[in-house]
Computed example of a mutant assay.
Amino acid sequence: MKIKLLLSLFVVFLMCANSYASFPVKRTVSNVSDSEIVSDTNEVLTPIVSSVAEKNLVVGVLLWFFLGGLAAHRWYYGKPVGWNILFILTLGGLGVWWIIDLINMLSGKF
């Protein structure tokens, strides 16, 4: 009984710790004058915002189909480690989470 309680608390801790970084943060510039940097040569420099390269959908779907139980598609797309481990331990949410991942990949929301 104690082991089940400790494992449950551990899983809850992992979910809480990883949930803070599980969503992408997009930076937008609403006022150009605040983000412009003027150098000595009167050139206007804009800040560089790094972007993540788009992953190939075909590779993601193939990983989902062949190695979906090991969360290979989630590792490929760079999802948080804790959620990937939870995916593996619950067998993809008994298949439900696995199907939702396919729908999100095909709709471009993954």
Results as ranks from 00 to 15, higher is better:
Thr46Gln: 15
Val12Tyr: 04
Ser107Cys: 13
Val59Asp: 00
Phe10Trp: 03
Thr28Phe: 10
Asn56Leu: 10
Lys2Leu: 06
Trp83Lys: 09
Ser30Arg: 14
Leu14Cys: 09
Val58Cys: 10
Glu43Cys: 10
Asp101Glu: 07
Phe65Ser: 04
Trp75Leu: 07
Thr28Arg: 13
Ser19Asn: 12
Ser39Tyr: 10
Lys26Leu: 13
Asp101Pro: 06
Tyr20Pro: 13
Val81Ala: 10
Ser33Ala: 14
Val59Lys: 00
Asn56Val: 11
Leu67Arg: 08
Met1Glu: 07
Tyr76Lys: 02
Val59Trp: 01
Val61Asn: 00
Gly93Lys: 12
Val32Leu: 09
Phe65Ile: 11
Val25Trp: 09
Asp34Asn: 14
Ile100Gly: 05
Val44Tyr: 05
Ile85Asp: 03
Leu62Lys: 00
Lys26Asn: 13
Gly78Pro: 00
Phe10Leu: 11
Lys4Ser: 07
Ile99Gln: 05
Val49Arg: 08
Leu70Thr: 05
Asn31Gly: 04
Pro24Ser: 12
Leu102Ser: 02
Gly69Phe: 12
Ser50Trp: 06
Ser107Ile: 13
Thr28Gln: 09
Gly60Ser: 09
Tyr77Thr: 10
Trp98Thr: 05
Gly78Ser: 09
Val81His: 11
Val49Tyr: 07
Leu102Gln: 01
Leu6Met: 10
Ser50Arg: 10
Ile37Phe: 11
Phe110Lys: 03
Thr41Pro: 15
Ala21Lys: 02
Ala21Asn: 07
Ser30Val: 10
Ala53Trp: 03
Val32Gly: 09
Ile99Met: 07
Leu63Pro: 00
Thr41Ala: 07
Ile88Trp: 01
Ser19Gln: 14
Asn42Gly: 08
Glu54Gln: 09
Val11Thr: 01
Arg74Asp: 01
Lys109Asn: 13
Thr90Tyr: 08
Lys2His: 14
Ser107Val: 15
Val32Ala: 10
Val52Ser: 05
Leu86Ala: 06
Thr46His: 14
Leu67Val: 08
Leu7Glu: 01
Ala72His: 08
Met15Phe: 06
Trp97Ser: 08
Asn104His: 13
Trp75Tyr: 09
Trp64Lys: 01
Leu45Arg: 12
Val52Glu: 04
Arg74Cys: 04
Val38Gln: 09
Trp75Ala: 04
Lys109Trp: 04
Gly92Val: 02
Val58Glu: 01
Pro47Gly: 15
Ile88Glu: 03
Ser50Asp: 09
Asn104Asp: 10
Phe65Gln: 00
Gly60Met: 02
Leu86Asn: 06
Ser51Tyr: 12
